[in-house]
């Protein structure tokens, strides 16, 4: 475990906690894309199929449980909680997210490291995670005025991906047994690039101390 990986995991964890905190305390999920949250829940469910069959470390298992638990809690809040669900921007959150799932599944069936159920599901989760933020970015662009917590949530998610790339570069040079992982690297790079535009506006808004506003 290197410092970049740990920092990446911590920003990832913070992003989810910021979102849960917002929903739980303000009892509002305004500006949050349910489509993206559904995709993330699917990403974690598909990727962590090994949670009870393969033990890596206590850290690994606990983090997996937190990500699974938090992503399904967010879904529960947005779909079932009688106050929170009323603040959901249903009419704005129109991205056809099902059309992301099928191509990712097909791609995972075609391009994977090993053609087994677990491996294909794992690869599917990597591809899906790369594009899962798209409905959220589209929603942000539509609502224009982004509240601070939603902005921080997306910023932390992007930071997590950026830190993971540095982690891969570090591991590549520092760990003799670490081999090339094109599927993870290319997907991770693509995912980080999707945030580039958002990052530009977010950092400008922080620098100028104004509310984040995305161009239409």
């Amino acid at each position: 475990m290197n410092i970049f990986r740990l920092a990446g995991d911590m920003t990832h964890l913070m992003s989810v906690l910021v979102l849960l905190l917002k929903i739980h305390t303000i009892k509002s999920c305004a500006g949050i894309s349910l489509k993206t949250q559904e995709l993330y829940a699917l990403v974690f469910a598909a990727r962590y199929l090994d949670i009870f069959t393969h033990y890596y470390s206590l850290y690994n298992t606990v983090m997996k449980l937190i990500f699974l638990g938090s992503s399904f809690s967010i879904l529960w809040y947005m779909k079932r909680h009688k106050v929170v669900r009323r603040s959901y921007d249903k009419d704005q959150d129109t991205f056809r997210h099902h059309f992301l799932v099928l191509p990712c599944l097909v791609l995972a069936l075609l391009i994977n490291e090993k053609f087994t159920f677990k491996e294909v599901m794992w690869t599917f989760s990597i591809y899906l995670e790369a594009v899962a933020i798209l409905p959220q970015l589209v929603l942000l662009q539509r609502t224009r005025n982004v509240d601070n917590l939603t902005g921080q949530y997306v910023f932390l998610l992007g930071a997590y991906r950026g830190l993971y790339i540095i982690n891969w570069i570090y591991r590549y040079f520092a760990e003799p047994t670490y081999s090339t992982h094109w599927i993870t690297w290319i997907s991770g790079l693509l995912q980080t690039l999707l945030y580039a535009d958002f990052f530009y506006y977010y950092i400008n808004s922080v620098k100028n101390n104004v509310r984040l506003q995305l161009p239409a």
Binding site: H12, H54, Y56, N60, W122, Y164, R171, T184
Partner: peptide, 10 residues
Amino acid sequence: SSPEPTKDEL
């Protein structure tokens, strides 16, 4: 079995 280095990531 061969090690799976990326699977130890989240």
